[in-house]
């Protein structure tokens, strides 16, 4: 066991892990965090706390993570390289760790163009791979990026993201391999709608033996409506929504569409459970956190194993 992370323990035990996410509020009310997190309690193993998601200012992810931690849940600290340079990131990491956060996800972050501070200078001192590498080095070598020793290194369980659908497709596995090489312990994928393609991806992952080196959590997003599916297909970069999914949603009345969306998500989980190399699920119910427990239950992932019992 590299860390004290609950997620690591569950994964190491061979159980399918379940994570979900919680976006911090755009303001200073801690109860907002609590409300959202409460919806997920007991149904997930850890909660991703996003970092200025979509390049909009929100409560800092480590602060929100601490609130969640206080609720007895396990936050996954997301960190993007867009807003902080290596100094700021390292200080936040040791700060968060000191407050009990032991799992993090390293990302590059959406471009400021998409957010509400389009005129901001983006930092990008490091990229996500370099961030993974830095966190791993802090943990395993006890060294800051600049080379100085750390007094009590943060033992972070390090995650990275992977998008099996972004182009160029033939680069996706290499990119994953690179992240693993940099030190990623677990990987959460982009939402998966095109299961065939994902399975192909996983085959390639397994062919290279990467499934042995990393825990991979498949990303699941329930669709609220056909409209949302179309939007994701056409407007969200790197998203692969097959027409059948849209058709299936359109095939039922508007009122039934949310139900159908959840059904699809559940079916996806059922199918992906069987896929070699899938170690769990990351359920991203965008502004629809209340449905996560239902999905987890229907997918047969409930109850969650208790860590103490492992």
């Amino acid at each position: 066991m590299k860390t004290e992370s609950k997620l690591e323990r569950i994964l190491a035990s061979g159980n399918l892990a379940v994570t979900s996410e919680c976006g911090p509020p755009r303001g200073a009310r801690p109860e907002k965090v609590r409300e959202k997190a409460a919806l997920l309690k007991d149904h997930v193993d850890a909660v991703n706390v996003t970092d200025n998601q979509t390049a909009m200012v929100r409560m800092s992810s480590w602060a929100a993570g601490v609130i969640i931690k206080q609720m007895g849940m396990d936050p996954i600290l997301q960190m993007v390289t867009r807003d902080r340079n290596r100094l700021a990131m390292q200080s936040d990491i040791i700060g968060a760790y000191s407050l009990g956060i032991n799992t993090m996800l390293c990302l590059s972050g959406d471009h400021p163009k998409f957010g509400d501070h389009a005129t901001a200078k983006s930092v990008y001192d490091l990229d996500s791979v370099q961030l993974v590498r830095m966190v791993q080095k802090m943990r395993d070598e006890g060294k800051f990026q600049g080379g100085a020793d750390i007094d009590c290194p943060p033992k972070m369980f390090v995650g990275a993201a992977s998008n099996p659908f972004a182009e160029p497709f033939d680069l996706r596995v290499s990119r994953l391999a690179k992240k693993i090489k940099a030190g990623a312990d677990f990987v959460q994928t982009q939402c998966i709608f095109n299961l065939d393609k994902f399975e192909k991806f996983m085959e390639m992952v397994c062919d290279r033996g990467l499934n042995e080196k990393v825990y991979l959590l498949a990303g699941i997003t329930p669709m609220k409506s056909a409209g949302m599916a179309k939007y994701m297909k056409n407007k969200v970069p790197g998203m692969d929504v097959p027409d059948e999914v849209i058709k299936r949603l359109e095939g039922v009345s508007k009122a039934e569409q949310p139900e159908e969306g959840i059904k699809i998500a559940v079916e996806s989980i059922q199918r992906l459970k069987e896929v070699k190399g899938v170690h769990g699920f990351h359920i991203m119910a965008i502004e629809w956190e209340e449905k996560v427990p239902q999905i987890v239950e229907k997918a047969g992932l409930f109850p969650r194993p208790a860590v103490e019992n492992l």
Binding site: D110, H111, A166, E167, R175
Partner: peptide, 28 residues
């Protein structure tokens, strides 16, 4: 657009950058 050193971000679409379809994805 993000001066990434280790590969494209997830926003690449058809060889173009997520910030605009006019911009080539350098990593592609």
């Amino acid at each position: 657009s993000k001066s990434l050193f280790n590969g494209p971000c997830g926003g690449t679409c058809s060889g173009k950058c997520e910030i605009s379809p006019e911009v080539d994805c350098a990593w592609c």
